[in-house]
């Protein structure tokens, strides 16, 4: 890994975003505006949701805000790299980057780091705005929460690497980001706890990494639980992160080799 190369790519992404000043400002304002209707809708359905989320913060507005934060993070971790490679293959930028001595891992992290950091920033802004509207966050558990957020990001970045590998080799992401996002939204506990999922489909949610990450995140950030209380979810999430990252890294390297063999690495 080359931190210098990754930093340079992040800086280029940041400078590009800043060059669209109006778009940047509007997106932040839109984010803050979005939280208001979310607050009122959450309050309206609080009585219905309260029993189901009693062990995950018990406040539906907080439950939903943390869920949306994680969902935004998952979307960028899974989609940022395949999107960047698709666009950079078309422009020739990918060819320019892989012609440098920077390793494949640094290129992958560098190309996706800015969108991921931006989504973290947007998510954090959302949560902070929620705080102003009454979410009770346990700030003392922030280190644990950050660890869980990092594990969620790593696990889904592994899936993003697999999708990116498909883009490099076959010019398609096989709808992997969309499928993961859909599964995470429906079965990962973004809008409702996984305990209310019907039993016939609950087994599927067992293989959704976000389900474990989100449960652990809510327990720490909203209920103030320590690491030892979320150890089971954390262990499973860590396993997902290790396995998915390893598979993703192998797939990505294999795809670069395949593209070099097939001569498609610099075709656009």
């Amino acid at each position: 890994m080359s931190p210098r190369a990754i930093g340079a790519l992040i800086l280029a992404g940041w400078r590009t975003a800043l060059s669209y000043r109006l778009r940047f400002a509007v997106s932040m304002v839109a984010l803050l505006v979005m939280i208001v209707p979310l607050y009122f809708v959450s309050r309206a359905i609080q009585p219905i949701m309260a029993p189901a989320i009693a062990t995950e913060g018990s406040q539906y507005f907080a439950f939903l805000t943390v869920g949306l934060f994680a969902s935004t993070l998952v979307a960028s971790c899974v989609g940022a790299l395949p999107d960047a490679i698709t666009s950079d293959l078309n422009s020739g930028f990918f060819e320019a980057v892989v012609s440098t001595p920077v390793g494949a891992g640094s290129v992958a992290v560098g190309l996706s780091a800015y969108p991921i950091l931006r989504s973290v920033l947007r998510g954090a802004t959302l949560v902070l705005a929620g705080g102003l509207l009454g979410i009770n966050l346990v700030w003392g558990r922030l280190p644990e929460a950050m660890l869980i957020i990092a594990l969620i990001a790593v696990a889904h970045f592994g899936i993003g690497l697999i999708a990116a590998a498909l883009v490099v080799a076959f010019r398609t992401n096989a709808a992997i980001p969309q499928i993961v996002l859909l599964a995470s939204g429906l079965l990962g506990g973004v809008y409702y706890p996984t305990t209310v999922i019907p039993s016939w489909i609950a087994n599927v949610s067992d293989v959704v990494p976000l389900a474990y990450g989100l449960r652990a995140l809510r327990h720490t950030l909203l209920d103030g639980h320590g690491i030892q209380m979320v150890l089971k979810d954390l262990g499973i999430l860590t396993s997902f992160a290790v396995v998915l990252l390893a598979i993703g890294a192998m797939a990505y390297r294999a795809s670069l080799h395949y593209a070099r063999q097939a001569g498609s690495l610099s075709q656009y």
Binding site: A12, R15, Y20, N90, G92, F93, E95, A96, Y268
Partner: peptide, 10 residues
């Protein structure tokens, strides 16, 4: 790389 789009235009 002769492709002009391989630069950051912004």
């Amino acid at each position: 790389i002769a492709n002009e789009r391989s630069l950051y235009w912004r």
